[in-house]
């Protein structure tokens, strides 16, 4: 079954499955315990190394299982974990399992431009105002009309000593907001990179003991970024291209890493994201098989009642017109052939002397004849006329 088309062939919205977009991706940690070997951490010894790769390891079990930062003894105590997802995804959740006491403050950010700029998705803190200058998240969710970065309670320590950071985009979106119909929500869930800033360790520190050398290290595993490869409703899966980049397997006449534009010949109407109601497939231009390229014209699209705006370019086989649907000057439509036939347009072949011009009627093929001349190509004298010696008046009345 084709998830992007009905059984009858009609296009329908299709989306890739929910995956852990961070799985196997390289995590950039601003701090990882390395040298000198201390406290069972030695980056040169696999049995005692705690690299950031352990956060997103694909398959298998390792020992150790947790990434660990360097010992942090003085401010700043920030440690940043950045995960480039490789392409745009539509986020559903982000989670991170801590192997030691979870931090008291964490900021979660996303980038939509491969790390050039960052915006917050949410905060987690026991001191939202102090740490992030925000009020705690209301229990009812965001008050505004759109999603917003709220400050949630800090990850709670669990009996085993660890803790779990869990963020769901649903928690920061007003109820009733629908991804299909809300461009704001579509923008909110779109991300190319995720960044987690571990801002404040669990160890209580206040101004008085900020310099106190109470060593602390962040330690975590299982960084998950739940989401769908973003294909705008025009692909059911993402694949690796020959260059090793993750790209959508675009359908519906679309192309691009996110199926974000119409293919070159599929520009009869503007690109749109597919919805459950309407697939908004890009339509091929109607050129009767005589052109390989076309362009979109908004004015024509509006005039057609938003049905068709494609204009064929470089009509071949002596055809012309927006859809290559009539013959170019000097040619006429052969009624015995289909409009898509390569020989649908025949040369007028007007007689060089008998015809008054080279352009014939595009439907009948009749050339314009001089006085007294007849025939489709004006190659004979009409009854009652005879050929003269003058090329200007080739037929004269019979005496």
């Amino acid at each position: 079954a084709d998830p992007c088309h009905e059984e009858g062939g009609a296009p329908r919205v299709c989306v890739p499955g929910l995956v852990n977009a961070a799985l196997g991706r390289e995590v950039l940690a601003s701090s990882t315990c390395r040298q000198p070997p201390a406290q069972a951490c030695d980056s040169s010894d696999p049995r005692r190394a705690h690299p950031a790769t352990l956060l997103t390891l694909a398959g298998g079990t390792t020992s150790p299982v947790c990434w660990r930062s360097d010992w942090l003894t003085r401010a700043p105590l920030n440690v940043t974990l950045t995960v480039p997802l490789g392409k745009t995804f539509e986020l559903v959740f982000v989670s991170l399992r801590f192997c030691s006491a979870p931090p008291s403050s964490v900021a979660l950010l996303k980038s939509q431009d491969h790390g050039r700029s960052w915006v917050p998705l949410g905060f987690f803190s026991s001191r939202c105002g102090l740490d992030y200058g925000r009020p705690p998240a209301p229990a009812s969710g965001p008050a505004g009309p759109g999603p917003e970065a709220l400050c949630f309670p800090e990850p709670q320590p669990q009996p085993n000593g660890g803790g779990l950071l869990a963020f769901s985009v649903q928690d920061s979106s007003p109820p009733g907001l629908d991804l299909d119909s809300s461009p704001v929500l579509q923008d909110w869930v779109t991300a190319t990179d995720i960044r987690i800033v571990l801002t404040r360790p669990a160890v209580p520190r206040d101004a008085g003991d900020a310099e106190a050398a109470v060593p602390y290290a962040y330690s975590a595993t299982e960084l998950q970024v739940g989401g769908r490869c973003k294909c705008n409703g025009h692909a059911a899966r993402c694949l690796l291209d020959p260059q090793g980049h993750l790209v959508c397997d675009c359908r519906h006449g679309t192309e691009g890493p996110d199926c974000g534009r119409c293919k070159p010949f599929y520009c009869d109407r503007p690109w749109q994201r597919a919805t459950a109601r309407e697939a908004h497939a890009c339509l091929a231009c109607s050129c009767n098989g005589h052109a390989r390229r076309c362009r979109f014209n908004m004015e024509l699209y509006r005039l057609s009642g938003r049905r068709s705006g494609g204009v064929c370019l470089n009509c071949r086989h002596n055809t012309a017109g927006r859809h290559c649907h009539y013959c170019r000057e000097g040619f006429y439509r052969d009624p015995g052939r289909a409009p898509s036939d390569r020989r649908a347009c025949r040369a007028c072949d007007c007689h060089p002397v008998g015809a008054a011009g080279k352009t014939c009627n595009q439907t009948t093929g009749q050339c314009p004849c001089k006085d007294g001349v007849t025939g489709l190509t004006c190659n004979r004298c009409a009854p009652g006329f005879q050929q003269s010696r003058s090329p200007v008046a080739p037929c004269v009345k019979t005496p």
Partner: peptide
């Protein structure tokens, strides 16, 4: 009545050299 096609050889191009079609 079907008239014969125009005979190009009968035309006198003396005064109309510029109109004469290429052979």
């Amino acid at each position: 009545e079907v008239m014969p096609t125009l005979d190009m050889a009968l035309f006198d191009w003396t005064d109309y050299e510029d109109l004469k079609p290429e052979a």
